[in-house]
Deep mutational scan, measured.
Amino acid sequence: MKVIFLQDVKGKGKKGEIKNVPDGYARNFLFKKGLAVEATPANLKELE
């Protein structure tokens, strides 16, 4: 799953980066803790 990092995550990505991460990791950790959002067209547009 492609995500946009909202904060630096040690060993995974830095704020503003767009990266592919495993689905479970994204849903169960990154999204729940507010560290990233899914890289949807709407979210990508907001990032610009």
Rank of each mutant, 00 (worst) to 15 (best):
F31Y: 06
L30W: 02
L47E: 07
K14N: 09
K33N: 15
P41M: 12
E46Q: 14
R27G: 03
G11F: 07
K14Q: 11
Q7H: 12
I18A: 04
L35F: 10
D23F: 14
T40K: 05
Q7W: 10
D23M: 15
F31L: 13
L44P: 04
A39K: 02
K10D: 12
K45S: 10
T40R: 05
V37Y: 06
K45F: 11
N43T: 10
G13R: 01
K2Y: 15
F29M: 06
R27H: 11
L44W: 06
V9F: 03
K45I: 11
G16I: 00
M1F: 08
K45Y: 11
V3N: 00
N20V: 15
G11I: 02
K15Y: 05
E38F: 05
L47W: 15
F5Q: 00
V3P: 00
M1N: 03
F29R: 04
P41T: 12
L6Q: 04
V3F: 00
E46Y: 14
K14L: 12
A36R: 01
L44S: 05
F31W: 03
P41N: 10
K19D: 02
V37H: 03
A26Y: 10
G34A: 08
G34S: 08
F29Q: 06
F5I: 01
I4K: 05
V37W: 06
V37Q: 06
V3G: 00
P41H: 11
F5L: 06
G24I: 12
Y25D: 05
D8G: 06
G16F: 09
E17I: 03
G13L: 02
I4A: 03
V37A: 05
K10A: 13
K12G: 14
A42M: 07
L6F: 03
L6D: 00
F31K: 03
K10T: 11
E46T: 11
V3Q: 00
G34Y: 08
P22M: 08
A42Q: 13
K33D: 08
V3I: 09
G11A: 03
F29G: 03
K45D: 09
G16S: 06
G16R: 03
V9Y: 03
K15V: 08
L47Y: 14
N43P: 04
L44V: 11
R27W: 10
F31N: 01
A42D: 14
P41S: 12
K12E: 11
G16Q: 03
G24T: 14
F31V: 07
A39M: 07
G11Y: 07
F31T: 03
M1W: 05
G24M: 13
I18F: 04
F5S: 00
K14W: 09
Q7L: 10
G34I: 02
G16E: 02
A36M: 01
A42T: 12
K15A: 10
N28T: 08
N28P: 01
G34E: 06
E46W: 15
E46I: 10
F5V: 00
T40E: 04
K14D: 05
F5R: 00
A26V: 07
L47A: 08
L6W: 02
K12S: 14
D23E: 15
L6V: 08
A42F: 10
I4Q: 04
L47H: 10
K2D: 12
E48I: 15
A26I: 08
K33A: 12
G13I: 04
K45E: 12
E17P: 00
A39E: 02
F29V: 13
N43W: 08
L35A: 03
A39H: 06
V21Y: 06
L44R: 06
K19V: 11
L47N: 08
N20H: 14
L6H: 02
L44H: 07
K10F: 13
K33S: 10
K32R: 12
T40V: 06
L35M: 07
G16L: 04
A36Q: 00
V37I: 14
P41D: 13
K2E: 10
T40P: 05
F5W: 03
L44M: 11
A26P: 01
V37G: 02
P41Q: 12
A26M: 06
N20T: 15
G24Y: 14
N28S: 10
N43E: 07
G11N: 08
M1I: 13
K2V: 14
E38I: 09
E17H: 05
F31M: 07
A42K: 13
D8A: 07
V37R: 07
V21T: 02
K19Y: 06
G16A: 04
D23W: 15
L44T: 08
M1D: 02
E38P: 13
F5E: 00
V9D: 01
G13E: 01
K14M: 11
A26G: 04
A39W: 11
E48N: 14
L47K: 07
A36F: 01
G34R: 10
R27S: 07
E48Q: 13
K15I: 07
G11V: 02
F5M: 04
K10L: 10
L47Q: 09
I4T: 02
I4N: 00
K10E: 14
N28L: 11
V9N: 00
M1R: 09
D8V: 04
Q7R: 14
F31I: 12
L30A: 01
A39Y: 12
K10H: 11
F31A: 02
E17G: 02
V9W: 05
A36P: 01
K33L: 15
K14I: 09
N43I: 11
G13H: 11
F5P: 00
K2A: 12
G24F: 14
A42S: 12
G16Y: 09
V9H: 02
K33G: 08
F5K: 00
L30S: 00
A42V: 10
L6S: 03
K33Y: 15
M1Y: 06
N28I: 08
G24V: 12
Q7D: 08
P22N: 11
N28M: 11
K33I: 09
G11R: 05
K10Q: 12
L6K: 06
A36D: 00
F29W: 11
V37N: 03
V3A: 01
L35T: 02
Q7N: 09
G11T: 05
E38D: 04
K14V: 11
Q7I: 11
E48G: 14
V21I: 07
D23Y: 15
E17W: 04
D23A: 15
A36G: 05
L44A: 06
I4P: 00
G24R: 14
I18G: 01
F29A: 05
F5H: 00
A42G: 11
Y25E: 08
A26Q: 05
A39L: 09
P22D: 12
I18L: 08
G34V: 04
L30K: 00
G34M: 09
P41R: 09
